[in-house]
């Protein structure tokens, strides 16, 4: 499996941009499949892809709808590439299930970096930050096999090594990015992480990314693991600072 090339889907209705992106990505060693419309792209998703670059404004079915339809089928990361830079567009694309958002015009290096970050194996291996090393607690650290996040009835258990999140006996499915976000939060259990820090750890883009990406992903994660997402008890918002994962 490991020697199979990583397959990237480019869904973009502009043939020029589609072709140039394909060439750049092929140079990076990816296998690229192209689609100019959402219907064709969904067929390719069914055949299996590892990452998707998706434009929002397409003829026929638009990018938002594509993301909503593709998300249940695959956990592969979705990077939106769009000329639309309104907050509402960014938020609704992320809420539909996108993992990252890049606005046109972009430097192709930026897209390459985002792709690399999203394809990186969700690392438990997430290296501790410099200030972590001094204060690092051995328990709750990344070396643990199992972290109990919520010991209530139907305990919430995260198994980093197996990439599993369990509520009681039921497994909760996470997308790659949700999984990476949860891993980083678990690594810093009980400590506040700023949005910028989360952008750096999860998306590798602390200075470029829109902090709304973090907010929307936290919201998505809460929906999956909180008993009452409107009153989160595990992933807590620390006003003005960021987020903190509390284990109980």
């Amino acid at each position: 499996m490991d020697d199979m090339p990583t397959r990237v889907l480019v869904l973009e209705d502009d043939p020029g941009l589609r072709t140039s992106l394909r060439m750049v990505l092929e140079d990076d060693g990816y296998e690229v499949v192209e689609a100019h419309a959402a219907d064709r792209a969904l067929e390719l998703v069914d055949a299996g892809v590892d990452l998707m670059l998706v434009d929002l404004m397409l003829g026929g079915v638009d990018g938002f709808t594509f993301i909503r339809r593709a998300r249940p089928v695959t956990e592969a990361p979705i990077v939106v590439i769009s000329a639309r830079d309104g907050v509402e567009d960014i938020v609704s694309a992320l809420e539909a299930g996108a993992d990252d958002y890049v606005t046109k015009p972009f430097d192709v290096e930026e897209v390459q970096a985002r792709i690399r970050a999203l394809l990186r194996r969700p690392a438990l291996a997430c290296p501790p930050t410099i200030d972590d090393e001094a204060t690092h607690q051995p328990d709750g650290g990344p070396s643990q096999d199992e972290v109990v996040l919520d010991s209530a009835e139907g305990p919430l258990v995260f198994r980093p090594a197996a990439a599993q999140l369990l509520r009681g006996d039921r497994e909760i499915h996470l997308t790659m990015t949700e999984y990476r976000l949860l891993s980083v939060l678990v690594d810093h259990l009980g400590r506040v992480l700023s949005r910028t820090a989360l952008l750096e750890h999860v998306w590798d883009s602390g200075f470029f990314g829109d902090e709304r990406i973090v907010d929307v992903h936290v919201r998505r994660l809460r929906k999956k693991l909180e008993l009452d997402p409107t009153e989160p008890r595990s992933i807590v918002t620390v006003r003005g600072l960021g987020y903190r994962l509390d284990g109980r």
């Binding site: 502009d14 020029g16 941009l17 992106l21 750049v24 015009p105």
Partner: peptide, 21 residues
């Protein structure tokens, strides 16, 4: 303005991507 921006953004992106190549 939004329409113009969209119309210009994609070709500019294509140009920068191709030039990078």
């Amino acid at each position: 303005a939004a329409d113009v921006s969209h119309e210009l953004r994609t070709p500019v992106t294509t140009l920068t991507t191709s030039l990078a190549l």
